[in-house]
Amino acid sequence: MSFEEQVDELERTVMSEKPFFSRPGGKIFIIWLILSVIGVLIGFYAPHHLLPAMMSSTGTDVFKTVVVFTVLAAPVAAFVYAVGIYSLIAWRHKGDQDEPPEDGPPMHGNGPMTVVWLVVSSLLVVVLLVWGLSVYMAQQVSHPNTLQIDVTGRQWLWTFKYPGTGVESRTLVLPLDRAVEFNVTSVDVTHGFWPVALGNQVDANPGEVTVIQTTPDKLGKFSVRCSQLCGLYHAFMYSSGSVVTPTQFSQWLQAQGVPPALADRTARIAR
């Protein structure tokens, strides 16, 4: 048995005579518990205030992911903070700060602790990965009756074309509860197509068409931003968007000059 193991053994024997919550481990456990609870509460509370009200399937995925990941990360972060706080309270060298304290116990490591740490963090990674992949895979599934919209970025605005109707609009209007596929491209430099509350984005690359899809599931207005620096007036590259009922969508198409029959067909309304 090495010297440090003997010291540890001795310390363990001495410590074990005290009740659990009087020992450092017990006190750290209490701090950890409190911090974890705070972290988990933040995980449930903060996303409502930090994220916009999500209006689509992908947006809801983002919201759920943020909550789940925060809740999973909270105990780990809380453990590090708990040890840090406790070390400052209990193990701090008091007295003359100009005088160096005595040396601490010569612990060079702790095999079991390291193994536990590795196993726990690996398990967490597996959980994150499974969650992330399942959400990602689900987003890749293509839906029938998808509404196609051609998005074009240019310095410095977005335009949206509704194929088959001849409509080109500067605002993005989407029907409720209908999968929509954005075919995104750019005519000059790289832009970032970011319909914010839809919780999805993809770059608009010149000469390439990139595709994302989502299903709007709440009525309301949202904004469309450019998320990739694209020159002088990048900050003003902005469009407003709205999610409307299919009837309103058809009316909007008609207001853009689409014949009523075609508008209704595009909006999938049975006459």
Partner: peptide
């Protein structure tokens, strides 16, 4: 002229 959030977002 562009509208932005805080003004009239649809203005163009």
């Amino acid at each position: 002229v562009r509208g932005t959030p805080g003004t009239d977002p649809g203005f163009f």
